[in-house]
């Protein structure tokens, strides 16, 4: 069993997102380590890009800060290796836009990511239509496919049927960012996806509180928390301590 399959043995899983380099590289490594040790079952590790068109203001700002502090793919991969050295065993999925990966060299990127201890990739600007080139390189490291409320049935079927690792179901039409309530049609949406696949279905975009996470966790196999994680941890005096409380509060609520 690989790390992703192991993580999904105890569902629903809690999947925070945090960008490397924010508020600075050292702190972000510590934050990710602490998230992992306090309830995160899988972490989406953010790679920064100058033009993050699927992200709302909070993640835009955080990744901008990371770039201003000189974050690069190379430094991000070294940070992943460091996390593995520190004993982090949960799956680490890289989430980032395609252009920096192209600039790094796709083959080299995948090879270096594997060596660093990365388990898979999420690339929001690489839909099914454009995925083949990258798919051909990743081997057993899944390129996580995204589905959206706008995906028509036929398309959903094609994407879900070929999905590996898990499916990232975008719960609302929009950019990343916390919403005040969980969208009404979510249960139906998840049911539609499940018709076509047996891989776990995880829901992201808009989940901001432990209570919402619990609610979504009752329907889905995993709950992705990005903006709330970045805002709460990044905005605090002591990010590492806050990360600990943050992870615990979500994990505890989801477990009871």
């Amino acid at each position: 069993m690989n790390r992703i399959e192991i993580a999904f043995q105890n569902k629903p899983i809690f999947m925070p997102y945090f960008p490397l380099g924010y508020p600075d590289l050292e702190t972000s490594i510590d934050v990710i380590e602490v998230l992992a040790n306090n309830g995160a079952d899988l972490i989406e590790v953010g790679l920064s890009f100058s033009d993050p068109l699927a992200d709302g203001p909070v993640i835009q700002k955080a990744t901008q800060v990371a770039l201003e502090h000189g974050i690069t793919i190379r430094k991000s991969l070294t940070a992943i290796a460091e996390l593995r050295k520190r004993g982090v065993t949960i799956p680490l999925i890289l989430m980032g836009y395609f252009n920096p990966m192209l600039a790094y060299g796709l083959e080299k990127f995948v090879k270096d990511a594997r060596e660093a201890g990365v388990d898979g990739f999420i690339i929001p600007d690489l839909p099914l239509e454009e995925a083949a080139e990258f798919q051909a390189l990743v081997g057993d490291m899944p390129l996580i496919q995204m589905l959206a409320p706008t995906s028509p049935n036929e398309r959903m079927e094609t994407i879900a049927r070929n999905a590996r690792g898990f499916i990232y179901l975008v719960s609302v039409t929009g950019v990343t960012g916390a919403r005040t309530s969980i969208s009404e049609g979510l249960a139906d949406l998840i049911a539609r996806v499940r018709e076509h696949t047996s891989v776990p279905v995880c829901v992201g975009f808009g989940i901001g509180t432990p209570e919402q996470a619990k609610e979504v966790g009752e329907m889905a196999d995993g709950v992705i928390v990005g903006t709330a994680c970045v805002r709460t941890i990044g905005g605090s005096e002591n990010p590492v301590e806050t990360a600990k409380e943050f992870a615990k509060s979500f994990k505890d609520e989801m477990a009871n």
């Binding site: 068109l53 699927a54 395609f98 929001p124 600007d125 690489l126 839909p127 099914l128 239509e129 454009e130 496919q145 995204m146 589905l147 959206a148 409320p149 706008t150 995906s151 028509p152 398309r155 994407i159 975008v170 039409t173 929009g174």
Partner: peptide, 8 residues
């Protein structure tokens, strides 16, 4: 090269 939400 766009997010899935926009493909449809």
């Amino acid at each position: 090269f766009v997010p899935e939400t926009l493909m449809p």
